[in-house]
Design a protein around this nucleic acid. Structure first.
Lengths: 190, 190, 190, 190
DNA sequence: TATGAATGAGAGTTCATTCAT
DNA sequence: AATGAATGAACTCTCATTCAT
């Protein structure tokens, strides 16, 4: 428990939403987890959806911010792209709660909120796409359909939240390297 | 409307669950869509969850059946794997409703039903994994960690349901070929 | 299964009402037990309550009829009363279903039907009361408040349905004799 | 209306269950009686059955407690037994609602709850039986089959709830004395 | 006689949210 | 800041009954 009640509430919600799902989690569950009456939650948040928005916003902010740094760096595109993939996977792994909720529950948002999420997500994709295109221009990446590349690559990465659990036989770094390897070189022998 | 009311109900549910989500769809919504009183639905199904189970089961049955055929064929592994990927994507695309619900809403099932789904899903993965391993044995696929390969490949494919919508600029076949290409050869120039 | 469908339906209802209770038994339960669709039941009965009425009526008819015979006989009052008690207990025991339902579920009837049942029941009580009063007149029974005597005696007897189950260590006759003995002589040593 | 809402709800339920029966009483009826929305009832109880359990438990607690005192007293057995009967009848009369519900609706409980009720009821019977047996040992009661004696006596007493209504021509004490007299001495002249 | 689809009312229950204290 | 009583709408599901076939 931190000194900040709102943080406690959000954290408890992340845990519960991840474990039980957004719809299956009641305000009572959250109140119980945080040691308040459910009515008291409304001193800190304005609605259950507000909580979902906050969690998703937090996930978005963090990843886009960090990716923007990578994109703005002067690394060669190949390294940039590799770092983007690694960063993406690490982000999922180290914030499994937020990211699970973002990737799984966003469609529970109101259309307005979904639009915001979609816009942010597209901004993210565009950043990655630009890195890819830099690589194409420099002749290091094959000249493929960029949106499709991004969807394939990020799809593979996003699925990570469905099966990654800490404490497996492989380290996170090894898995990230694996993804980069497969997405860069494919699975076919040359 | 078909002559079979149950089919109508399932179809209406697929559409509604896909559009609004399982939790956000009420039995009243389904009844309205199909022109019955909500109580009347229970002549055909035993519960709302039953509906979800049927939809997901249908998705599972179809795909595993078809994949088993591919796996049992005497095609060379490279072709088998390519077909598996194509079949997977086509399956998603041509049954977008069922597959969206399967991939997005399965965690709304009871633990018992989730266990069944998990078992079936793992059977599916195992089939694909075996194809990959055949390829490794024959020297056509790189000897990588098999479970991780499968997760990466199927992750990329599964994500398809999140963005594929019929009527885009590319044909389904082109997209399937694209996936096979990228997953086989990666995005890096050689 | 008899050749008479209505009889089958009533019998199945008796069994189900006794085992599960009137409210907890659905028309579907009855239909299942008798091998019909529930809609088909309405060719034989007009409502669920009708069924209850029939069962209770059957119980009433039988017992009142038989008791009237006893009352009209020229046995001495003491023997008449003893026979009435025996007959009452035997009646409960050999028609446990009907009697259980009568004694337990009659209050589920509509006020109109309840009134009928009440009238019949009072007729029954009056018959027993008259036997008692004959005995008082002849000096064989103590001159106590007749309605209270009847309520005490029949209360003790009615309770029989709550605990009697066939196949116990004592025979029905022994139990009937026991009741007569206790109600005639009390439990105190003289 | 008391200051305790739960008490109000229970009292209203007792009245309604007694008058209309447990199954025929809806949560809406209770809510109306107590001036709440039906959903609001669930702040105080967890289910309709919970209400029934509470009512029945209350009946059980009270009577067993009081009987245990009588049984533990150093009165002579004859007086103990008489008091037990009186106490039983008074208990029914002064808590007609609770006792009616207990005696009439207990079989609407789940099997688990029924088992508890059965256990408690048997404990009660055992207490009365022991009093009777004391009397037999001291030569004041006839040596009859004890379980049957108890069933006869308590059956007669339990039936009381079916016909006793306050304000009759006889006082409660007179009726209790009557029961004791009849059960002790029988109805036959000596 | 029998079906089985359909009704329509109502059941118990849940839940996010509000608000006086 | 916190309570907890209360709301009110919505929810899934049940069921006795009807009726065209």
């Amino acid at each position: 428990m931190s000194t900040n009640k709102l943080t406690d509430i959000v954290n408890a919600s992340v845990e519960l939403f991840m474990k039980k799902g957004y719809h299956a989690t009641s305000m009572q569950d959250i109140a119980d987890a945080v040691g308040l009456q459910k009515g008291s939650l409304y001193h800190y948040i304005s609605s259950k959806e507000d909580l979902l928005v906050m969690i998703i916003q937090e996930a978005l902010d963090q990843y886009i911010g960090r990716l923007a740094e990578i994109a703005a760096s002067d690394l060669p595109p190949r390294e940039k792209f590799a770092q983007a993939v690694r960063h993406h996977l690490m982000g999922i792994a180290t914030n499994l709660g937020h990211l699970t909720i973002f990737l799984r529950e966003a469609y529970a948002l109101t259309p307005e909120q979904q639009a915001i999420v979609k816009r942010e997500t597209e901004r993210y994709n565009r950043l990655v796409e630009r890195i890819y295109q830099e690589g194409v221009e420099q002749g290091v990446f094959r000249p493929l359909d960029p949106p499709l590349v991004i969807r394939t690559v990020l799809g593979a990465c996003n699925w990570f939240y469905r099966w990654y659990r800490p404490g497996g036989r492989m380290s996170l770094e090894e898995m990230a390297d694996f993804f980069v390897d497969v997405l860069f070189n494919g699975i076919v022998v040359r």
